[in-house]
Design a protein around this nucleic acid. Structure first.
Lengths: 191, 191
DNA sequence: GAATTCGTTGAATCTGTATTCAATATACAG
DNA sequence: CTGTATATTGAATACAGATTCAACGAATTC
């Protein structure tokens, strides 16, 4: 089994390296040889692990899709919606410093959803959906009178789009301080 | 002079077509032949107008850099900062529907600033800076007691990053309704 | 209306990079 | 140990797509 374990580790190493480089330099500017050199391993060997550069991206995105299930549970959360969202974002921004992995994944997933990436990957990334969940949460907050009026789905989309914008800004400049999660949740708050 | 005018118009047509396609499909997925076909003109002729695909991108970005000077004046604006920002965003979102050109330009400029685009273009896009101006505006709002405490520069960066995130979301789904500008300015408002 | 210049074309190159492959080394089974 | 399977390499190939170019057409000049 050592053999199989080795392979699995190697595979993960490639995925992680690819994730980092894709976010740092962008998918198209990241050459297969760059990833191979960074792992490190020979160029050719990459293709024993992944059929193509595109499949590699797809696998990274799949990995991200699994991890992001956190945000797609039921809206029956035992804390007020604003508290939940603030806490979630605070943790997420903290990761930006401590756990670049999670952070990079968030940024990559968002980027892939947008244009300019292979269609396969886009489809998978788009399937991950935190909008519905967040919209429910927002609707609840509206009933409780803590969130402003407005279409919850639109608000959820704008909320996450903002977060994404900020995460990308942080990805671009790793020295940037994380914002206060409260600032963003304030978008939703009443009055 | 008809000849010269023709050329200038053709040039603009290429720039506009390129802008649209770059935003719709992404820079790398947009082939020179795609742009040529859309203008329309032959592939070869493209190179009488622009030396290379990269130079074409750079020229589009330069065009954007000129237009974006709007946001880099002095902070001596005769209206309260929150009103100014709200008005500005409202207009900007309105453009998203009426004037796809301005809208696309905003999205492209933002994307180019981020990773994954040729360095030349990035430098030019990065030179356009609305952060300083906005930070001044925010500082003024803080003095007036209408904006929350916090580093004005960080707040300005987050503000524009949010706007960018939302604009990209809108670019991705042209049917999406524009958010209320007030939502975003609320990020800055004091509790 | 002949000469010259500029606009235009699309097929032929050239280039960068993903992908393949023949060869070699290393692990594992019997 | 021997044979078989798997890991690894880096140079050779394939290919997509940017770029060039030789030829043609249309405008402008004198």
């Amino acid at each position: 089994m050592t053999r199989k374990e080795q392979k699995e580790e190697r595979r993960k190493a490639i995925l992680m390296t690819a994730l980092t480089l894709f976010v740092e330099k962008g998918y198209y500017d990241t050459k297969i040889t760059d990833i191979a050199a960074a792992v490190p391993m020979s160029t050719g060997l990459m293709f024993h692990y992944f059929e193509s550069k595109e499949e590699l991206l797809v696998e990274v995105v799949k990995m991200g899709a699994e991890g992001t299930r956190a945000l797609s549970g039921s809206a029956d959360i035992p804390v007020p919606p604003d508290v939940f969202l603030t806490g979630f974002l605070t943790q997420m921004f903290a990761y930006a410093k401590e756990q670049p992995w999670v952070f990079n994944m968030f940024v990559l997933m968002s980027q892939v959803r947008r244009n300019g990436m292979p269609e396969d990957a886009r489809r998978i990334a788009s399937a991950v959906d935190s909008i519905d969940f967040t919209a429910q949460l927002i609707a609840r907050g509206q009933q409780d009178g803590i969130f402003r009026d407005g279409d919850p789905v639109l608000m959820a989309r704008c909320f996450w789009a903002s977060v994404q914008g900020i995460m990308e800004e942080m990805a671009m400049d790793r020295n940037m301080a994380a914002p206060d999660a409260g600032w963003i949740v304030a978008m939703l708050r009443k009055g």
